[in-house]
Amino acid sequence: MSDKLNLVLNVWRQKGPKDAGRFVRYEVKDISTHMSFLEMLDVLNERLLAQGEEPIAFDHDCREGICGACGVVIDGSPHGPSKRTTTCQLHMRSFRSGQELTVEPWRAAAFPVLRDLVVDRSALDRIIQAGGYVGVRSGSPRDANSIPVRKEDADLAMDAAACIGCGACVAACPNASASLFTAAKISHLALLPQGQPERRERAIAMVARMDGEGFGHCTNHGECESSCPKGISVDNIARMNREFLAAAAASRRPLGAEAKDDDGGA
Protein backbone atom coordinates (compact mmCIF):
# COMPACT_ATOMS: atom_id res chain seq x y z
CA MET A 1 0.00 0.00 0.00
CA SER A 2 1.29 3.39 -0.99
CA ASP A 3 1.70 5.82 1.89
CA LYS A 4 1.14 8.89 -0.28
CA LEU A 5 -2.22 10.36 -1.25
CA ASN A 6 -3.48 12.86 -3.79
CA LEU A 7 -6.64 14.69 -2.78
CA VAL A 8 -8.96 17.39 -4.02
CA LEU A 9 -10.17 19.79 -1.32
CA ASN A 10 -13.10 22.18 -1.60
CA VAL A 11 -12.30 24.59 1.21
CA TRP A 12 -14.52 27.35 2.54
CA ARG A 13 -12.69 30.67 2.11
CA GLN A 14 -14.06 33.79 3.79
CA LYS A 15 -11.98 36.95 4.21
CA GLY A 16 -13.79 38.14 7.33
CA PRO A 17 -17.10 38.14 9.23
CA LYS A 18 -18.73 40.42 6.64
CA ASP A 19 -17.47 38.58 3.55
CA ALA A 20 -20.00 36.29 1.83
CA GLY A 21 -17.45 33.47 1.47
CA ARG A 22 -17.14 30.77 -1.18
CA PHE A 23 -15.62 27.34 -1.80
CA VAL A 24 -12.19 27.20 -3.44
CA ARG A 25 -10.87 24.01 -5.03
CA TYR A 26 -7.31 22.91 -4.20
CA GLU A 27 -5.41 19.86 -5.36
CA VAL A 28 -2.91 18.46 -2.87
CA LYS A 29 -0.38 15.85 -3.94
CA ASP A 30 2.01 13.42 -2.23
CA ILE A 31 0.37 13.70 1.18
CA SER A 32 1.82 11.21 3.64
CA THR A 33 -0.81 8.93 5.23
CA HIS A 34 0.99 9.50 8.55
CA MET A 35 0.12 13.19 8.54
CA SER A 36 -2.80 14.55 10.52
CA PHE A 37 -5.51 16.48 8.69
CA LEU A 38 -4.11 19.72 10.11
CA GLU A 39 -0.59 18.86 8.93
CA MET A 40 -2.05 18.29 5.46
CA LEU A 41 -3.56 21.80 5.67
CA ASP A 42 -0.12 23.08 6.84
CA VAL A 43 1.44 21.59 3.70
CA LEU A 44 -1.20 23.25 1.54
CA ASN A 45 -0.66 26.56 3.36
CA GLU A 46 3.13 26.39 2.78
CA ARG A 47 2.40 26.11 -0.91
CA LEU A 48 -0.14 28.96 -0.84
CA LEU A 49 2.38 31.19 0.97
CA ALA A 50 5.08 30.33 -1.58
CA GLN A 51 2.63 31.29 -4.34
CA GLY A 52 1.91 34.60 -2.59
CA GLU A 53 -1.67 33.60 -1.69
CA GLU A 54 -3.39 33.93 1.67
CA PRO A 55 -3.06 30.73 3.71
CA ILE A 56 -6.23 29.00 4.92
CA ALA A 57 -7.03 30.10 8.48
CA PHE A 58 -7.96 27.31 10.89
CA ASP A 59 -7.96 26.98 14.69
CA HIS A 60 -5.51 24.64 16.39
CA ASP A 61 -3.44 24.50 19.55
CA CYS A 62 -2.28 21.35 21.34
CA ARG A 63 -2.58 19.01 18.32
CA GLU A 64 -2.92 16.08 20.68
CA GLY A 65 -6.70 15.94 20.94
CA ILE A 66 -7.18 17.47 24.38
CA CYS A 67 -7.54 21.24 24.03
CA GLY A 68 -10.70 21.66 21.94
CA ALA A 69 -9.26 24.40 19.72
CA CYS A 70 -9.35 22.61 16.36
CA GLY A 71 -12.28 21.43 14.36
CA VAL A 72 -13.53 21.60 10.81
CA VAL A 73 -16.43 19.87 9.09
CA ILE A 74 -15.17 17.31 6.56
CA ASP A 75 -17.80 16.03 4.13
CA GLY A 76 -20.55 17.01 6.58
CA SER A 77 -18.91 15.34 9.60
CA PRO A 78 -17.51 17.55 12.37
CA HIS A 79 -13.89 16.44 12.98
CA GLY A 80 -14.16 14.12 9.97
CA PRO A 81 -15.05 10.46 9.54
CA SER A 82 -13.22 8.87 12.52
CA LYS A 83 -15.17 8.33 15.73
CA ARG A 84 -14.01 9.99 18.95
CA THR A 85 -11.25 11.85 17.13
CA THR A 86 -10.45 15.54 16.94
CA THR A 87 -9.38 16.99 13.58
CA CYS A 88 -5.76 17.21 14.77
CA GLN A 89 -5.75 13.48 15.57
CA LEU A 90 -7.48 12.52 12.33
CA HIS A 91 -4.85 10.86 10.17
CA MET A 92 -4.74 11.00 6.41
CA ARG A 93 -4.81 7.20 6.27
CA SER A 94 -8.56 7.63 6.91
CA PHE A 95 -8.88 8.80 3.29
CA ARG A 96 -8.35 7.22 -0.13
CA SER A 97 -6.13 8.69 -2.81
CA GLY A 98 -8.20 10.58 -5.38
CA GLN A 99 -10.95 11.45 -2.89
CA GLU A 100 -12.61 14.85 -3.15
CA LEU A 101 -13.39 16.41 0.24
CA THR A 102 -15.50 19.37 1.33
CA VAL A 103 -13.99 21.30 4.25
CA GLU A 104 -16.29 23.77 6.01
CA PRO A 105 -16.35 25.67 9.30
CA TRP A 106 -18.80 24.91 12.15
CA ARG A 107 -22.12 26.37 10.94
CA ALA A 108 -24.24 28.12 13.57
CA ALA A 109 -25.64 31.62 14.04
CA ALA A 110 -24.05 31.60 17.51
CA PHE A 111 -20.63 30.76 15.97
CA PRO A 112 -19.97 33.57 13.46
CA VAL A 113 -17.20 32.81 10.98
CA LEU A 114 -14.20 35.04 11.67
CA ARG A 115 -12.10 33.88 8.73
CA ASP A 116 -12.08 30.79 6.49
CA LEU A 117 -12.48 27.82 8.88
CA VAL A 118 -12.18 29.83 12.13
CA VAL A 119 -15.39 30.54 14.04
CA ASP A 120 -15.98 32.59 17.19
CA ARG A 121 -16.96 30.10 19.91
CA SER A 122 -17.04 32.61 22.79
CA ALA A 123 -20.79 31.88 23.15
CA LEU A 124 -19.67 28.64 24.89
CA ASP A 125 -17.47 30.68 27.26
CA ARG A 126 -20.46 32.85 28.17
CA ILE A 127 -22.50 29.73 28.99
CA ILE A 128 -19.71 28.73 31.41
CA GLN A 129 -19.63 32.25 32.85
CA ALA A 130 -23.36 31.98 33.58
CA GLY A 131 -22.81 29.15 36.08
CA GLY A 132 -20.32 26.51 34.98
CA TYR A 133 -18.15 26.90 38.04
CA VAL A 134 -18.13 26.26 41.79
CA GLY A 135 -18.24 29.44 43.87
CA VAL A 136 -16.21 28.41 46.90
CA ARG A 137 -13.16 29.92 48.58
CA SER A 138 -10.35 27.92 47.11
CA GLY A 139 -7.72 28.11 49.86
CA SER A 140 -5.10 25.41 49.98
CA PRO A 141 -5.83 22.09 48.31
CA ARG A 142 -7.82 19.60 50.35
CA ASP A 143 -6.58 16.14 51.05
CA ALA A 144 -7.66 13.59 48.50
CA ASN A 145 -10.85 11.75 49.49
CA SER A 146 -11.68 14.25 52.26
CA ILE A 147 -15.06 14.63 50.50
CA PRO A 148 -16.47 11.16 49.80
CA VAL A 149 -17.91 10.69 46.29
CA ARG A 150 -19.73 7.54 45.15
CA LYS A 151 -17.72 5.66 42.54
CA GLU A 152 -20.63 5.71 40.04
CA ASP A 153 -21.06 9.49 40.44
CA ALA A 154 -17.34 10.09 40.14
CA ASP A 155 -17.27 8.08 36.90
CA LEU A 156 -20.29 9.86 35.41
CA ALA A 157 -18.92 13.27 36.44
CA MET A 158 -15.56 12.41 34.89
CA ASP A 159 -17.22 11.27 31.66
CA ALA A 160 -19.10 14.59 31.46
CA ALA A 161 -16.02 16.60 32.41
CA ALA A 162 -14.16 15.06 29.47
CA CYS A 163 -15.88 17.69 27.27
CA ILE A 164 -13.20 19.88 25.70
CA GLY A 165 -15.66 22.51 24.48
CA CYS A 166 -14.72 22.17 20.81
CA GLY A 167 -18.28 22.83 19.62
CA ALA A 168 -18.55 19.76 17.37
CA CYS A 169 -21.91 18.98 19.00
CA VAL A 170 -23.27 22.33 17.82
CA ALA A 171 -21.80 21.76 14.36
CA ALA A 172 -23.33 18.27 14.13
CA CYS A 173 -26.78 19.15 15.47
CA PRO A 174 -29.45 19.69 12.80
CA ASN A 175 -30.70 22.58 14.97
CA ALA A 176 -27.25 23.95 15.89
CA SER A 177 -28.07 23.24 19.53
CA ALA A 178 -25.47 23.53 22.28
CA SER A 179 -27.41 21.12 24.50
CA LEU A 180 -24.69 18.46 24.72
CA PHE A 181 -22.01 21.00 25.71
CA THR A 182 -24.26 22.73 28.28
CA ALA A 183 -25.53 19.37 29.59
CA ALA A 184 -21.98 18.05 30.06
CA LYS A 185 -21.01 21.16 32.04
CA ILE A 186 -24.17 21.10 34.17
CA SER A 187 -23.85 17.34 34.74
CA HIS A 188 -20.29 17.19 35.90
CA LEU A 189 -20.94 19.68 38.68
CA ALA A 190 -24.45 18.40 39.54
CA LEU A 191 -23.01 14.92 40.15
CA LEU A 192 -20.36 16.06 42.64
CA PRO A 193 -20.75 17.27 46.25
CA GLN A 194 -18.88 20.51 45.45
CA GLY A 195 -21.54 21.45 42.91
CA GLN A 196 -24.54 21.11 45.22
CA PRO A 197 -24.91 24.64 46.75
CA GLU A 198 -25.42 26.31 43.37
CA ARG A 199 -27.04 23.34 41.64
CA ARG A 200 -30.45 24.91 40.94
CA GLU A 201 -29.23 28.37 39.98
CA ARG A 202 -26.59 26.82 37.74
CA ALA A 203 -29.05 24.73 35.73
CA ILE A 204 -31.40 27.67 35.19
CA ALA A 205 -28.71 30.25 34.42
CA MET A 206 -26.75 28.05 31.99
CA VAL A 207 -29.87 26.95 30.07
CA ALA A 208 -31.05 30.56 29.89
CA ARG A 209 -27.64 31.71 28.63
CA MET A 210 -27.54 28.87 26.07
CA ASP A 211 -30.91 30.01 24.71
CA GLY A 212 -29.88 33.65 24.88
CA GLU A 213 -26.90 32.95 22.64
CA GLY A 214 -29.23 31.85 19.84
CA PHE A 215 -28.45 28.13 19.77
CA GLY A 216 -31.26 25.82 18.63
CA HIS A 217 -33.21 23.36 20.76
CA CYS A 218 -32.58 19.64 21.21
CA THR A 219 -34.67 17.29 19.06
CA ASN A 220 -32.88 14.14 20.28
CA HIS A 221 -31.34 13.07 16.98
CA GLY A 222 -28.12 11.97 18.71
CA GLU A 223 -25.86 13.48 16.05
CA CYS A 224 -23.94 15.37 18.78
CA GLU A 225 -22.98 12.24 20.70
CA SER A 226 -21.88 10.52 17.53
CA SER A 227 -19.57 13.37 16.47
CA CYS A 228 -18.24 14.20 19.96
CA PRO A 229 -14.48 13.50 20.08
CA LYS A 230 -14.86 12.64 23.76
CA GLY A 231 -17.96 10.45 23.34
CA ILE A 232 -20.12 12.52 25.71
CA SER A 233 -23.47 10.71 26.04
CA VAL A 234 -26.89 12.27 25.34
CA ASP A 235 -27.88 10.86 28.74
CA ASN A 236 -26.32 14.10 29.98
CA ILE A 237 -28.97 16.05 28.03
CA ALA A 238 -31.70 14.13 29.85
CA ARG A 239 -29.91 15.00 33.10
CA MET A 240 -29.76 18.68 32.13
CA ASN A 241 -33.49 18.64 31.36
CA ARG A 242 -34.19 16.96 34.71
CA GLU A 243 -31.96 19.43 36.57
CA PHE A 244 -33.59 22.39 34.82
CA LEU A 245 -37.18 21.18 35.33
CA ALA A 246 -36.55 20.39 39.00
CA ALA A 247 -34.82 23.73 39.53
CA ALA A 248 -37.58 25.68 37.76
CA ALA A 249 -40.22 23.90 39.87
CA ALA A 250 -38.36 24.64 43.11
CA SER A 251 -37.11 28.14 42.30
CA ARG A 252 -38.51 30.93 44.47
CA ARG A 253 -37.47 33.64 42.03
CA PRO A 254 -38.98 34.17 38.60
CA LEU A 255 -36.90 32.61 35.90
CA GLY A 256 -34.36 35.01 34.44
CA ALA A 257 -33.80 36.89 37.72
CA GLU A 258 -30.63 34.85 38.23
CA ALA A 259 -29.09 36.26 35.09
CA LYS A 260 -29.59 39.93 35.93
CA ASP A 261 -25.94 40.60 36.73
CA ASP A 262 -24.80 38.69 33.68
CA ASP A 263 -22.86 40.93 31.34
CA GLY A 264 -22.43 38.37 28.58
CA GLY A 265 -24.53 38.04 25.49
CA ALA A 266 -24.26 38.87 21.85
Binding site: S179, V207, D211
Partner: peptide
Protein backbone atom coordinates in the same frame (compact mmCIF):
# COMPACT_ATOMS: atom_id res chain seq x y z
CA UNK B 1 -31.05 36.83 20.90
CA UNK B 2 -32.68 37.93 24.14
CA UNK B 3 -32.21 35.96 27.34
CA UNK B 4 -35.42 33.98 28.05
CA UNK B 5 -37.55 35.46 30.83
CA UNK B 6 -39.94 32.66 31.74
CA UNK B 7 -40.14 28.89 31.90
CA UNK B 8 -41.89 28.58 28.56
CA UNK B 9 -39.48 30.92 26.83
CA UNK B 10 -36.59 28.49 27.42
CA UNK B 11 -36.01 25.68 24.93
CA UNK B 12 -35.99 23.11 27.74
CA UNK B 13 -39.35 24.44 28.97
Amino acid sequence: MAQPTGFLSTTVG
